[in-house]
Design a protein around this nucleic acid. Structure first.
Lengths: 378, 378
DNA sequence: TTGAAAGCGATACCAG
DNA sequence: CTGGTATCGCTTTCAA
């Protein structure tokens, strides 16, 4: 059936030139006349040439070096993202992939340096969490100019030249939270609050909008209050919640769109409202587990950090291998709903280490798989 | 840092023999003295030899042929599973993978023939949905004996020699359904029914048990009734539900653990109970969509067929490449909770075709990716 | 600017 | 039973 795949040799032969020239033309390397280059490109297309990757890896045995610039693992979220990246890198049977982790201690602190160092050391690609999009945008541009593809994870950096991004679907998150809230509250009347980091952050604003829209259309008995911004400060969150409780005695529920649910819970407990409020949070970390177990938190919207990491790696890798020919490079993941009933399932998932120790007879820990290098952090 | 990886040549050199012999020894091919074979194996291990897959694919340019034996696409479930398999096969940048779909019209009808034909045509691996485990077990054994690895999807076939399986975690499914049911019903008293295919099917029994256990421990105000078996017959389901409604006027909710939710809903509507009952279903298919949209179904436990397909393919592929060295080869997926709020997200996912048309400059539809062959069905 | 040739590591076949 | 060698398609280097 299928024709034999076109090779460099085929192209060379039909043009009566040498395979070396074809190669140079295809990779626009110096030293090819524009004429021949054009001809090569054209017949490559005509013949439907696609490089044989096995051959490529065999000859140029270079390893991809990719830098992962993320927040330090204060919460488990980023540890999970990194675990997902390692997992997927380890699954690359053919190639060598070297992972360099550059972690920074807090939001916006050190992420520019991490980028600078990654670019300086000429990594082949970068996976990053752009905590401060404004500050990072020029760095992503710089990387692009240096032909280093950047994939954003968890948060997007639009108009930065990044080649792709992986995140949780904000619309699905906000909407399912609203639907759960409505069903949990049943026919009850009352108002519902939403806390977020900052309205200026697209993702947060989108979650709020989705939540509000869904609640309005499906549960008109409930009223959505204006978003509460906590600027990622515990005290701010606590204080504002306190005020909220005073001003809204009819408050029936709270949806915390960020990881900052602990101060909200504390405020609710201190106000003796924990029993009466239906609380839906985001993500899943040790401090939250007890709250879910006790029933204080009805459900949490789990953002699947490990899967985000896995997808980000795959996306970057495909880009690297493919030369960017690929598709839209935007992945929006559906969040998981975690409650008492299924929480153990997810906790168990988290605890199992990423490395599934291969016991194969011809196997050795760190050979063809990914070797890991330690960067500035971790 | 890292030593250069060991090659066949290295082994040959340290033993003072030829690389051809080493190769034969490693692949236990005829024509190697037991003595040399043992020595080769030993030093291979000592040197930490691992085959270079790129080189392997380059020289032996054979394509994997894998057979996918599944139910015909009466529901969208199996279409999705197959789409997932195609997706993942298409993502194999290096290798050629040929997919042969053998579909059978109904449960247990034609699946033995499909197996026979796949084995007869010497495929390299099989992904199957063992609808009738008893009948299929000997066939899976036969495949194993012919060194054809079999991966089960959606349902397991224990003690059959299958090399792995992918399914939804039954415990997580049943438990989250119970937790949702409990929260939706609030403080209400009453009984809750569960329908399933057959108690004899492990997966179904497990879901029921998990549901019952969780409900008992978290929501003692609700009482779980004995499981209702419908044997996958619409009339049976309808009739038994009718009886259920008569016998249990305090019925507050129903959890349908299988795809057979339509007759249950019909029975509830005919008994004029749709408003009063909280119904949780399984999976997501066209007929169910309207029921969810209208609120008749509060939530559905979505079994992520596409992901199941993707994972099954990856598992089989890893096994094929790896020679079975890999890890546990059991994947239990967390189901998604789908409600009105997030249903559109999933519907949209379903509708987009699996092939994300690559528009890359050096790309052509069917070259290095997977070629598809049509088998007995589809 | 181009051509020729030496690998990369494994497979497969043909002699011995 | 074992050794040698051509081959897969691409990258890279050295000449021309």
């Amino acid at each position: 059936m299928g024709e034999d795949p076109t090779t460099l040799h085929d192209i060379a032969r039909t043009l009566g030139i040498s395979i070396g020239t074809v190669h140079r033309a295809l990779h626009d390397r110096p030293g090819v006349s524009p004429m021949t280059k054009a001809r090569v490109l054209r017949t490559a297309r005509n013949l439907g040439y696609r490089p044989n990757l096995a051959a490529r890896y065999l000859s140029s045995k270079k390893a991809f070096r990719i830098s992962i610039n993320t927040l330090q693992g204060t919460t488990s979220f980023w540890d999970e993202v990194r675990a997902g990246i390692r997992e997927e890198a380890g699954a690359m049977l053919m190639e060598n992939v070297q992972l360099e982790f550059r972690t920074y201690p807090s939001l916006g602190d050190g992420e520019e340096e991490a980028f600078e160092s990654a670019i300086g050391e000429k990594v082949d690609g970068i996976i990053t969490f752009p905590s401060h999009v404004q500050k990072l945008r020029p760095w992503i541009r710089r990387a692009s100019r240096a032909r280093i593809p950047v994939v954003c994870v968890a948060t997007d950096a639009p108009n930065s030249g990044r080649v792709g991004m992986v995140a949780i679907d904000t619309l699905a998150s906000g909407s399912i939270a609203a639907d759960l809230m409505g069903r949990f509250l049943g026919a009850r009347q009352g108002s519902v609050a939403v806390t977020l980091f900052d309205n200026a952050i697209t993702e947060h604003a989108e979650k709020y909008e989705a939540f509000a829209a869904t609640l309005r259309s499906l549960y008109p008995n409930l009223q959505v209050l204006d978003a509460i911004e906590d600027y990622d400060m515990e005290k701010e969150a606590y204080r504002k919640c306190g005020r909220l409780f005073e001003e809204h005695p009819d408050l029936a529920g709270i949806y915390v769109t960020t990881e900052a649910s602990i101060p909200v819970l504390k405020a609710a407990r201190d106000a003796n409202l924990l029993e009466r409020l239906t609380i839906i949070t985001t993500d899943l970390f040790p401090d939250l587990v007890a709250q879910i177990r006790s029933g204080a938190v009805s459900a949490t919207i789990y953002q699947r950090p490990r899967t985000q990491g896995r997808m980000a790696f795959r996306m970057l890798h495909e880009f690297l291998v493919d030369g960017g020919g690929g598709s839209s490079h935007q992945i929006q993941l559906a969040p998981h709903v975690v409650m008492r009933g299924n929480m153990d399932f997810f906790l168990q998932r988290q605890s199992q280490e990423s490395v599934d120790e291969k016991g194969g007879q011809l196997r050795e820990p760190a050979r063809n798989g990914s070797r890991e290098w330690l960067g500035t952090g971790e």
